[in-house]
């Protein structure tokens, strides 16, 4: 149980770190959105699941899953809204040369 939790927490922390690096390294807004996607899905999910292993059965577990559900439902909506607003604000995505 403890080991599973530790592994999940480690994966989550790494994903958060990679996402943060991605936000800095990516060349434009739209590619940065993908990096945010990592922190929002794998990062948050792995850390919250890892904490769920520590929490054990009870109200805490339900609340942890509630937070996770809220994040997984709302974050893509926010990302989509951001991308859409940027397109409408005449930001053209940086595109690679076609192969």
């Amino acid at each position: 149980m403890e080991i599973a939790s530790a592994i999940l927490l480690l994966i989550g922390a790494l994903a958060m770190l990679v996402g943060g690096i991605g936000i800095l390294r990516m060349p434009d807004l739209f590619t940065r959105l993908h990096a945010v996607g990592i922190t929002d899905t794998l990062g948050a999910a792995a850390i919250l699941l890892g904490l769920a292993f520590i929490a054990g059965w009870g109200l805490l577990l339900v609340k942890l899953f509630l937070i996770l559900a809220v994040l997984l439902l709302l974050n893509p909506t926010a990302s989509h809204a951001l991308g859409r607003a940027a397109v409408h604000g005449a930001r053209r995505p940086w595109l690679s040369a076609p192969k």
């Binding site: 993908h34 899905t41 893509p76 909506t77 859409r84």
Partner: peptide, 15 residues
């Protein structure tokens, strides 16, 4: 569908 696309890193639904 659009939300699933956005949730998957690597693809984002714009419109």
């Amino acid at each position: 569908y659009a939300n699933s696309i956005t949730l998957t890193p690597g693809t984002i639904s714009l419109e």
